[in-house]
Structures are given as C-alpha cells and as structure tokens.
Design a protein around this nucleic acid. Structure first.
Lengths: 190, 190
DNA sequence: TACAGTGATGACAGTAACTGACATCAACCC
DNA sequence: GGGTTGATGTCAGTTACTGTCATCACTGTA
C-alpha cells in the first residue's frame, strides 16, 4: 500500500465535478474540492492549472482524434469533406458518453467564465485542424476558413444533439448541419 | 470646477491601455492603473467589471452597428449577403481607427486570458447577429449558421488586414474572404 | 542491510483580483 | 439654509493562485 491513496488527479476531478454540479461553479471553492478529495488546495493546483481546467482536461484528446482523422484521410478528398468526416468520427465517440457530456455542458453553460474557456478550447481545436489541413497541402486562407467552418458546423450540430427531442444520431446531425450550411452559402450572390 | 477631475472612466481606460502596452497585461496591477489615473482600485472596479473589460468596452458599439445594419437591410436580400454587407460596413468603421485597433490587438494576442475574452465577445456578436436575422424571419439553424459563418469570414479578413503587406481595403478583404469561403464549401461533395 | 536519492504531498506565507459596507463631501434642489 | 444625491474614498474581507521548503514512503544500489 502506498503512502497516499492512489489516483489523486481522478479524485480531484470527481470531487470538483460533483461540487460544481451540486452548488455551481462559483459557489465552490478549491479548498472544498481538495477537502472532499482528501488532499490540499496546493495539490489541486499541481494537477490543474486553474479551477476551470478540471472541466476541459478532455479537450486535448478530442483534438488528437480530429487531427488524426484529418491526417489519415484519403489524399484525394476535398478539405471540407475531410473536416466534416473527422467531426462525424468525433461525434460518434462523444455519443458514447452522452450522460457525462450533458452534465458537463449544463455546468459550463451556467457560467460565463466557463463559456469563455469553452470557446478558447474550440478556437484551439480550429487552429489544430487548420494546421492539419496545411500539412495536407491546403493553403491559407482556405485552411483556416475550412477549419473554422467545420467548428461552426459542429457547434450547430452539438446544439441540436443536446436540445432536440427527435434524437437523431450525432454524426448524422453533423452531416445535416453541413448540408444546411451549403444551402445557406451557395444561394447568396457574390 | 467639480470636486474631482472629470472623465474618471476615460482616465482609467487610457492608463490601463498605456500600462498594458508598456509592461504587458499580467505585469500590470489594478492598483497601478488606478494610481496613474489618480483614483483608487475600488473606483476602477466600479467602472469595469474586471481587469480585462477595459479592452472590450467597445465591443458593444460594434455589435449595435452590425445589428443595425442587418435590421435595415433590404427585405429581399439573402441572409448571407445581409451579414457580409454588415461586416463590410463595420470594417469601414474599424479602418478609421487602424492605429488603436492594432495596439489593442497586440496586447490581446500576447495573453491567453485576453484571447479568451475576445472569443466570447465574438460569440456574443454571433448570437446578436443570429437574433437580428431571426427578426428578419430567418429560421434556425440557418440563422445561427449564417451568423457564425459571418464571424469566420470576419476573422479571416481581420487577420489579413492586420498581417498582410499589400494593404487591401478592409471591406474588400471581407468580400474576398467570403468568396474564398464559397469556393471552399461549394466544391465539396454532399 | 544500510543509505542516498526521488517524487508526491503538506505546510505556510504571500500577492493580487474582486466584493461589501459604510463614510465623505461638493453640487444641486427646494 | 438644510436635506439629498452621487461619485469617490476607506477598509476589511474572501479566494484564486504561486513560491519555497519540509516530509517521508518508496526505489535502486552497494
């Protein structure tokens, strides 16, 4: 048996999520999280850069997934198709954890600071996607524009996934969202 | 002559901008800003909700401008065209204050917290635009998708305006960015 | 078996962002 | 003249976050 209970990071993460859910993000102090995890405040900040970061730890994994999907797509595929397909893959993964994703989303949307952090994670995702496209030989500004458009599609689809009652499949919602965007942009004058 | 020097808010704003520019956002304390403006820390927080907000005070005006432009566009115009035209108008206004806009952008891009705030302001802008479109009778998800796409176009154009050497006119860069996006999306398969 | 690292954690003091409560006092109104 | 108002000051408090050093079970090595 070790000197301390194992999995400090996991205990901190679970304690934080539970408290954020129970009493809201702002009304939870780091001292309380640490106490519930049986650790000290100082240790919390050794694992998480700040109080919000607990909720965004998984964003890196999502980014890897998307970048990997873009990198391994067939060479001949058009950039926009590659990005949309990557998001479809990611959507399928997220669909597995619907429960957790929804709780996290409730906590985040209840707080302005957290919404800010969420946006920057999406922006970083966009930048990573644009990079991945450039590595496929897509030039700028097409690369960043395609990536940002992908993010816009994802956001619209996520919104529908969370709030719609009809329960379409998440990957299908991505596809639908893309078609909607094409309808919206192609009709306009130049 | 009043009891205090006039224009406290303006003095605080100028002091903050100057200090952020001189020594960076993180290395500037609110106490220092207040001291330079001849006021107290407490008064700073009466005018600005937090230390970042000094830099984002103007976002509301930009939002009004865009929303107004969307609201007053010809009824028959396609949503995407309305949004792009609104951004062209905004771009023309921003072009008037290029100097200040650039300094502000340098300060913001040097700091992660500020980039977060900037993103949330853009998101709020997107939401306001989507609302304005809905008031024109555009249904969701077309409204939010059109608005978000407009934001993506604006960001790409702003990037070019700041960094490109050729010095195209900002409104023209908006138009170019839109055409680029159309090229990128219309080519792909469905 | 001794013993010098090592690494996760604790202890503790400090900085700075932000808030609440109340005092002050020129200007304004009647 | 006297009451009210509104912008500011004063001050004490909370809490996020950081730097620094101590502790001590575990690990590898002689």
């Amino acid at each position: 048996m070790g000197r301390w209970e194992p999995d400090s990071r996991g205990r901190l993460e679970r304690a934080a999520l539970a408290l954020y859910g129970e009493r809201g993000f702002e009304n939870t102090t780091v001292a309380e999280i640490a106490a519930r995890a049986g650790l000290t405040e100082r240790t919390f900040f050794r694992y998480f850069a700040d109080k919000r970061e607990v909720l965004f730890w998984g964003a890196a994994a999502l980014r890897e997934l998307l970048v990997g999907a873009v990198a391994s797509a067939p060479e001949t595929a058009a950039p926009m198709d590659v990005v949309v397909a990557a998001f479809e893959t990611a959507a399928a993964v997220l669909q597995e954890r619907r429960e957790g994703a929804l709780l996290r989303q409730v906590v985040i949307s209840a707080n302005a600071e957290l919404r800010e952090r969420e946006l920057i994670k999406l922006a970083l995702l966009g930048a990573a996607l644009a990079d991945a496209l450039r590595r496929r030989g897509v030039a700028d500004p097409a690369a960043s524009l395609t990536a940002d458009t992908g993010i816009a599609i994802f956001r619209a689809a996520f919104e529908a996934w969370v709030h719609e009652t009809e329960r379409r499949e998440f990957p299908q919602l991505i596809r639908d969202s893309f078609n909607e965007l094409k309808a919206v942009t192609s009709g306009a004058a130049s």
